[in-house]
């Protein structure tokens, strides 16, 4: 919903980035002529080493980088929602008012309640943000982003600060929500498993460009699946990490469970 310089005229792509350059110093650019297309409703996960420019790209798409030097073309839809790593709830507003923050429609409160119910926070409308757990705060942030019916959802390591179990619950919830609302999604993550579990496409950012662009065509998104392990090993190798656990071991702590979130 932020204002952006570019507007998409053709609706075959939700996001179109061409030749994007961004740099913070004279020494070298963070993004060096990056191209990226995301189709409407497509779920793209963006991985890359720490400092590779993932957040820089996301902020460019969110229209939050007005002070950063660079050039290139960015086209995004009108309605863009952003989920940050911290839930970024306004501490002086109750949960429902946070969810409907900036909505001007008459039925905003009602829609906010529906959104809160969708993320499993019914009954917490009147709570203060500090009364929620970390996972609940992040769910409220998800409700806030989805109540705006975004055409594009940008998320920068939204589950990075959560514990492993909560994160699995959030994965299930996010997939469910994305199936219901069908926004295009760009999810930044440092977790390769998270990327494979959630995304239709995984892209790897390196040297300021998209170094790899892989479609995830798995029937079952389970780590027990040898294809999953192969993809995982491939992506880890791309990030410069040896994956010696390649032929599908089962770690209890990374097992993916598709039970509904609560």
């Amino acid at each position: 919903m932020a204002t952006h310089p570019g507007r998409l005229t053709d609706r075959t792509a939700a996001v179109r980035v061409r030749g994007l350059h961004r740099s913070f110093s004279r020494a070298g650019g963070v993004l060096n002529g990056l191209d990226l297309d995301i189709a409407p409703g497509e779920f793209v996960a963006l991985i890359g080493r720490s400092g590779s420019g993932k957040s820089t790209l996301l902020r460019a798409l969110a229209g939050l980088d007005r002070d950063v030097a660079g050039h290139g073309a960015v086209d995004v839809p009108d309605k863009v929602s952003v989920v940050f790593q911290d839930s970024r709830l306004l501490p002086w507003k109750r949960v429902l008012d946070n969810v409907t923050f900036g909505l001007r429609d008459k039925d905003a409160a009602q829609r906010g309640q529906v959104a809160l119910a969708e993320v499993g926070l019914e009954g917490r409308e009147k709570a203060w943000p500090h009364e929620l757990s970390g996972g609940e705060q992040q769910r409220a942030a998800l409700a806030r982003s989805l109540v705006r019916d975004p055409e594009l959802l940008l998320a920068d390591e939204p589950f990075g600060a959560l514990d492993a179990l909560t994160r699995i619950r959030m994965h299930v919830l996010l997939r469910k929500l994305c199936e219901a609302h069908q926004p295009a999604v760009l999810l930044v993550t440092h977790d390769v498993d998270e990327a494979i579990v959630l995304a239709d496409r995984v892209i790897v950012l390196d040297d300021g460009v998209v170094a790899r662009d892989l479609r995830v065509d798995l029937d079952r998104r389970s780590q027990a699946d040898p294809e999953f392990a192969a993809l995982r090993a491939q992506l880890l190798a791309e990030l410069g990490v040896e994956d010696d656990s390649a032929p599908a071991p089962r770690h209890a702590h990374t097992r993916y469970d598709r039970k509904a979130a609560s």
Binding site: M1, A2, V80, V82, F84, R88, F101
Partner: peptide, 12 residues
């Protein structure tokens, strides 16, 4: 400043 950023993305 992060709250200003949030407000910007919320389009207020």
């Amino acid at each position: 400043g992060k709250y200003a950023e949030l407000a910007e993305t919320a389009g207020v």
